[in-house]
Amino acid sequence: MRDALRVRMKPDWDEIGRTSERGLRFLASHRISPQLAEALYMIISELLENSLKYGVYATEKERVALSIRVADRQVIVEVSNPFDESCRAHLETLDKLVQWIRGYQDPFEAYLEKLREVSRRPLQDETSGLGLARIAYEGGAILDFFVDEKKLLNVSALSTLE
């Protein structure tokens, strides 16, 4: 049984469902409970959606990279995408948001606060941060991110196996 799945995805919205399903099949091979698999499917999909919303795909060859690792009673979902200086504002927002979520002892409270905030925002506002708050609350995952030496933005969610 493989401990990790690595997929390179074309930055196309229609690929998200197929790639998330592939992640789900990998998780099923690790006999992860259906309930946790359901939560991980959501985590994979939300992170892939963010990578398409905020990534920079300058050439046809650029891809989103998804990695799922299962080890030591933990599942780590990591999504990376090309990134450049034009995304500086997004990086700052991401940093603030991750710190803000971590500041809550219970991610449910952070999620409720986001719901209240989003209910007052314009409908077309895509930068709500609701997806990350949902990952922390519904997915019970710890979020982290870094920019590597290849200028790839890596966002990860760590979930503990029940």
Binding site: Y41, M42, S45, E46, E49, L115, V118, S119, R120, R121, L123, D125, E126, S128, L130, G131, R134
Partner: peptide
């Protein structure tokens, strides 16, 4: 069967 977080936005705006 599933909804992404972007779907939650129009739903909560309707509730509000």
């Amino acid at each position: 069967q599933y909804m992404n977080s972007s779907t939650i936005t129009p739903v909560i705006r309707l509730l509000e």
